[in-house]
Design a protein around this nucleic acid. Structure first.
Lengths: 195, 195
DNA sequence: TTTGATACTGAACGGGTGTTCAGTTAACTT
DNA sequence: AAGTTAACTGAACACCCGTTCAGTATCAAA
């Protein structure tokens, strides 16, 4: 056997990325073999190398794509006027985006250490750019007197950690709906940065 | 060569656990080989099996010891009277304990998935017990009217995620000292659960 | 000083790893 | 229908994996 009937790179390529993302998120990058990914796609291991130069590049592609989409989505997200509205927009955006892409979020926080130095630096700088978006909101609110924050950098890290944690416990169809979760988190954040 | 001069199980045993913990935390359980651990200890791979039945048991031992110590330390931690004092005690305890054992904390949150079902269940139940300690404080404060929390379970997860995140950015000797970090986090938590 | 327990080595086991590539078949173009 | 390109196989490469074990050197006790 060689080429499969109905095979197409525009089908196999995305399939590989999707299965790799799921497997990496579930078991960890190092614990997943190229043969396991290939088997999940329905292909032999060698075929993966038509789509990626090596295993690390496959991971980097997933992380890079995720960060690009995160920054692009936030750039286009609706944000009101004033620090309070901007903060609320960020909180709701972050929760919504994270919940809709739990695997990718988990990967981009956990598997950075498997990247080489220059790939690591690229993702890290994007993550910092995203965090700076929140910090800028907090700084602006602080200067405008809308927020009372002892340290904006610490508050940034605290809020992001708190919000990102939602993926560890939230289950679709559980006790709380997504809008309820957003509301409750926003309530806590609003109070935490307030007077 | 066989036995090394000056060798003793009471020295080698702790060395193995310490090196394994550091390597697992840095590179991930799956990415670290028994030979790497052995090399870090200064011993051949086979010698590790005098101290652990297998690799997973080594990880479990680290996680179990950490959770036991966490629960024991909290049980003996000073806590004042009333919900507000109890919450403050928890916040300061959690930050302090986490910062003093960053590797172990990281492991117990990230490498649970490498445990077999029954080992997983044991650690998971201890973690839930710890989380319940915080939730009980929040519930008591809510009923006493000291806190205003829409959902105590969500608030529990949110606060723990926020506090645990301190290990990802805090560096000893940096801009902020430990007491300052504790103060600022406590300020945010206090306001977040307040009216 | 002999003896037995303790701590470790070094080689081996079967199997899995990422990656390469000549060969083969399906899909597309002319 | 013939020729070309795209997609994939299956075997092989050198190496690393967790784990076992007979053998050996050191330590502690008698």
């Amino acid at each position: 056997m060689a080429r499969k009937t109905g095979s197409h790179s525009q089908i196999t390529g995305p399939k590989i990325r999707a299965q790799a993302q799921q497997l990496f998120a579930r078991h960890g990058f190092a614990a997943v073999s190229m043969r396991q990914i290939a088997a999940a796609v329905g292909v032999q291991a060698g075929a993966l190398y038509l789509y990626t130069p090596d295993k690390e590049a496959l991971l980097f592609d997933l992380l890079k794509t995720h960060m690009d989409e995160l920054l692009a989505a936030w750039a286009e997200a609706p944000r009101g006027t004033g620090p309070m509205a901007a903060l609320e927009a960020f909180v709701r955006f972050h929760i919504g985006f994270n919940l809709s892409r739990a695997d990718a979020v988990f990967l981009s926080y956990m598997e950075l250490r498997n990247l080489g130095p220059e790939n690591f630096a690229m993702i890290e700088s994007q993550r910092r750019a995203y965090e700076t978006e929140l910090e800028d909101i907090l700084k602006a609110g602080q200067q405008a007197g809308a927020f009372l924050i002892p340290d904006t950098k610490l508050a940034t890290m605290a809020i992001i950690a708190m919000l990102t944690g939602v993926t560890t416990w939230f289950r679709e169809g559980g006790r709380l709906s997504r809008p309820m979760v957003e509301d409750i988190y926003w309530d806590m954040v609003r109070k935490a940065v307030g007077a």
